[in-house]
Amino acid sequence: MTYTIDTNKVVSEIFNDEAVIVNLASGAYYSFKGSAITIWQLLGAGYSDEEIIGQFKDAESINKFIAFLVQENLIATSDAVTKQTITIDQPFTLPEYKKYDDMKDLLLLDPIHEVDQTGWPHKKAE
C-alpha cells in the first residue's frame, strides 16, 4: 500500500538527525529520529509499506510506525503508483517518534462556549 502526505495539512522539515512535523489541523507536532526520518521520506516519495519493509526487514517496528502516522492523520492511503527514487545510505535504526500536543488546547477551544471574560486564548475555568 502507498500513502500520501497532504502538504496543505502537514508541514515538515528534515534536519541531519531529526525531522520536525506539524499537523496544521490538530496543532500536534512531532519529532522523528532514527529510521523514522527515512521512512517518512520514503512514504512521501511514494514507496509502499511492502517496499520499505523489504528494504529494512524490521516489519514490526515499521508497521507500528506507519500505523502511528495514519492514526495521527499525517499520511493517508493512496492509489498512486508513481514514485520518486530515493537513495538510502543510512543503516536501519529503530524508528523514534515523539508527539507534542501542547498546542492542541489552543486550537480545540470552542470559541463560543469555552472562553471566559478574559477572552481567548484563556480556557474557561472549570
Binding site: E13, A19, Y29, M103, L107
Partner: peptide, 29 residues
C-alpha cells in the same frame, strides 16, 4: 540543535496567530 530551535519557535507562533501557518513555519525554518 536547529531542530530544537524549530520546535521551540514554530508551533507556538503558528498557532497563536490566525492564518499563515505554512508561511510562518517556512520563516521559522
Amino acid at each position: 540543535t536547529e531542530a530544537e530551535v524549530l520546535k521551540s519557535i514554530a508551533p507556538t507562533t503558528m498557532f497563536q496567530l490566525p492564518f499563515g501557518q505554512t508561511e510562518t513555519f517556512r520563516k521559522c525554518i
